[in-house]
Amino acid sequence: MTASAPPPAPPLSAIARAVNVSKIYGSGEAEVRALDNISVEFGTSQFTAIMGPSGSGKSTLLHCLAGLDRVTSGQIYLGDIDLSGCSEKELTLIRRDRIGFVFQAYNLIPTLNAAENITLPMALAGKKPEPAWYEQIVRTVRLADRLKHRPNELSGGQQQRVAVARALVSRPDLMFADEPTGNLDSKSGAEILSFMQGAVRDLHQTIVMVTHDPNAAGYADRVVFLADGKIVDEMLQPTADSVLDRMKSLGE
């Protein structure tokens, strides 16, 4: 985060929207409202962090937005497609062609090398990445000399960089990251976060990241705070300190 960063643009054109979304597990006495009538929008070329204490529903929201999980009520829009009306197969193809993923761990297929892992979603679609874009991504995440290595020959930070490259290589509408730095040391974590920041700023990608780490949230353009399945606050242009303060106040 530097002072010269441009001011965050308000979400002019929302690429993803949750409209009155609820997600309920169980029923009756055992009913758990993971998401409670949430509405939220995510703009293009924006880096949004979703924060909240564990059990706040932040991962559930991410899963629903990404077409990995289904909502109990409400709609999720990706562009103008209503995900809640999509079949299992349509969701799979949307994930493949329009969404990128970075998980906390186990992001890579152990039998494929770094290059093959990066191009996996495109290969599944029977497509080839645009050479220039691929080059740019690989250069950005500094993996050029590691492409022939298998995951078990890469460090944790390198593995996550491969995952970020995979998530970006197909120019997705939206990239989701679920605690992408959760398993990394702070140096590698900072590296990954600046790549993500760079992808939004320089390559005009859109990223939604779930994290509980105020430092990580400090890299975002916007932070959405969740608690008990509801959006409780929002912050633009966050810094690690301001996020930490807000977290404290939410915790009180």
């Binding site: 197969k89 799979t92 493949r96 186990y106 297929i109 599944l124």
Partner: peptide
Amino acid sequence: RELGLMRAVGMTR
């Protein structure tokens, strides 16, 4: 785990 990941990044059934 691996199959789940592949399904998540867009492998069809």
